[in-house]
Amino acid sequence: MHIQHWAPPLACYLWPLASMARRRGKRIVVTVHNPHPHEQAGTFKRIEDRLLRSADVLLAHGARGVQSLRDRLGADAPAVCQVAHGMHVRTEPVVATDADYARLGLDVHRRNVLLFGNLRGYKGLDVLLEAWKSASEQLAGTRLIIAGRFWSGKRHLLSRLSARLLGMSEHAERLQTLLLEARSSGNVMLWEGFHSDADLDALIRVSSFAVFPYLRFSGQSGAACRAAEQGRPVLVSHVGGLPELAIDNSWVCIPGDSQMLADKLVEKVMQTSESRGCDQRQLDMVRCFDWARVADDHGAIYRELL
């Protein structure tokens, strides 16, 4: 039985499910997408620990994720293996079309830098906005697009309860205030809400690169993988498995260092405007994350358990 596990609250039903399967003689594999919770977890984390300890094998994305699980669970932890976050890596980098700009209502002559995904406190959005503001003169011809939704708990009762328990509503309110101030500058655009795959892919195509300045993290970002697999360079912070996606160390920042991030933003906007060579280098960097190889890695682990 192979369980995909994202967040501590899910352990409330996944742990009993795994226990039931084990009583029936099944072997248990758990892919742990986030070896350490992003937000406060409390009781959920203790239940999650029981789920993780019930497994025969735990899978983590990246070497740091493997070590994080071993440190968290101690000497009696189950076996922990590294399996990359899979990607559909393109043969060639994607290219923006006039239809993409028309679909998004964007100026074809203006450069864009993109951050997308769920907008949560640990993702460093506040650091990015501070960096963008400090480099505003050098980035005058470039727009920062922030696309995603806040986990504020305003959608329905269950989401409100989850947001309160995990401490996400306070983060959402603070980020919304910061964004309101940043948008007044005219070169920061917030595209809030859930977006279709077609819209997200169009956003990736019209962007020079994507930025993921996470403050704390122990996995690999699905959003960063989505940009990288299409040949859009990713500017990331040195946390979790993010550096493994970067073209080289020049695309990696110290988490929380807004001045370093500002300098990198200016450098990479200039670099990508002069040449599209970085797009191909990004694809070449992540070919080892292709789903075919990830499937082979899973198959080898399954055979060991039989």
Rank of each mutant, 00 (worst) to 15 (best):
172 A>P: 01
119 L>M: 05
113 V>K: 07
128 L>A: 08
150 F>I: 09
167 G>C: 07
118 N>E: 15
171 H>G: 00
165 L>M: 15
119 L>G: 04
155 R>S: 08
159 S>A: 15
133 K>I: 03
167 G>F: 08
143 R>D: 13
154 K>T: 15
124 G>S: 06
143 R>N: 14
119 L>E: 04
133 K>G: 11
149 R>A: 13
168 M>C: 11
141 G>A: 13
163 A>S: 14
148 G>C: 08
138 Q>C: 10
149 R>F: 14
143 R>T: 15
151 W>G: 11
152 S>L: 07
113 V>S: 11
156 H>A: 08
149 R>D: 09
172 A>W: 00
148 G>Y: 08
119 L>W: 05
163 A>F: 00
158 L>H: 14
115 L>P: 06
166 L>P: 00
131 A>F: 07
139 L>K: 05
161 L>G: 06
173 E>M: 10
116 F>L: 06
141 G>S: 14
127 V>L: 05
127 V>P: 01
135 A>G: 11
148 G>S: 12
131 A>N: 10
143 R>F: 11
150 F>S: 04
159 S>G: 01
158 L>D: 09
148 G>H: 12
156 H>S: 01
157 L>D: 09
122 Y>C: 03
140 A>I: 13
133 K>A: 15
173 E>T: 14
159 S>E: 15
122 Y>E: 15
171 H>R: 02
116 F>H: 07
138 Q>D: 15
138 Q>T: 10
155 R>C: 06
139 L>S: 05
157 L>P: 13
133 K>V: 10
125 L>K: 07
146 I>C: 06
138 Q>Y: 06
130 E>M: 09
164 R>Y: 12
131 A>L: 07
129 L>F: 01
168 M>F: 07
158 L>P: 02
132 W>E: 09
113 V>G: 08
167 G>S: 06
132 W>C: 12
162 S>D: 13
163 A>L: 05
170 E>F: 02
138 Q>P: 02
123 K>Y: 09
159 S>H: 09
144 L>C: 10
153 G>T: 05
133 K>M: 08
118 N>D: 13
118 N>S: 14
132 W>S: 15
141 G>T: 03
151 W>S: 10
137 E>N: 12
151 W>P: 05
132 W>L: 00
130 E>S: 12
121 G>R: 03
152 S>N: 12
165 L>D: 01
158 L>S: 11
119 L>V: 13
129 L>I: 09
142 T>E: 02
120 R>F: 00
136 S>K: 12
